[in-house]
Amino acid sequence: MQQTVLNPNKQESAAPCNEYLAFKLGQEEYGIDILKVQEIRGYESVTRIANAPEFIKGVINLRGIIVPIVDMRIKFDLGEPTYDQFTVVIILSIANRVVGMVVDSVSDVTTLEQEQIKPAPEMGTALNTDCLIGLGTLGERMLILLDIERLMSSDEMGLLLQA
Rank of each mutant, 00 (worst) to 15 (best):
M1W: 10
M1T: 02
Q3A: 00
T4H: 14
V5K: 15
P8R: 10
P8G: 15
K10G: 12
Q11F: 13
Q11A: 03
E12L: 14
E12F: 14
A14C: 00
A15V: 11
A15L: 14
C17L: 10
Y20P: 00
L21W: 05
A22K: 08
A22F: 08
F23N: 09
K24P: 03
K24S: 11
Q27M: 02
E28Q: 12
E29C: 08
E29S: 12
Y30L: 04
Y30V: 02
Y30C: 09
L35V: 08
K36I: 03
K36G: 00
V37W: 03
V37A: 00
I40P: 02
I40D: 02
I40A: 09
I40V: 11
Y43P: 01
T47L: 12
T47D: 10
T47A: 09
T47N: 06
R48D: 04
I49Q: 10
A50K: 11
A50N: 11
A52V: 14
P53R: 01
P53V: 04
I56Y: 08
K57C: 07
G58A: 08
G58D: 10
G58H: 08
I60F: 06
N61I: 09
L62R: 08
G64N: 13
G64W: 09
I66W: 15
V67L: 13
V67Q: 13
P68N: 09
I69R: 04
V70G: 10
M72D: 02
I74V: 07
F76L: 02
D77R: 15
L78R: 14
L78W: 13
T82P: 05
Q85T: 06
Q85I: 06
F86A: 07
F86W: 09
T87R: 00
V88A: 06
I90A: 00
I90Y: 02
L92V: 04
L92A: 07
A95T: 11
A95W: 14
N96A: 09
V98L: 01
V99R: 01
M101L: 04
V102T: 00
D108W: 06
D108E: 13
V109Q: 05
V109R: 03
T110A: 01
T110G: 02
L112K: 00
E113C: 10
E113W: 06
Q114W: 08
E115I: 13
Q116C: 01
Q116L: 03
K118D: 13
P119F: 10
P119C: 12
P119L: 09
E122V: 11
M123N: 10
M123S: 09
L127I: 07
L127H: 03
D130F: 05
D130M: 05
C131D: 14
C131R: 06
L132H: 02
I133N: 00
L138V: 03
E140I: 04
E140V: 06
E140W: 10
R141N: 11
M142Q: 14
I144K: 04
L145D: 03
L146C: 01
E149A: 06
R150G: 01
R150K: 13
D155V: 09
D155E: 14
E156V: 05
M157C: 04
M157E: 11
L159M: 04
L159V: 02
L160Y: 11
L160I: 12
Q162H: 15
Q162T: 15
A163N: 15
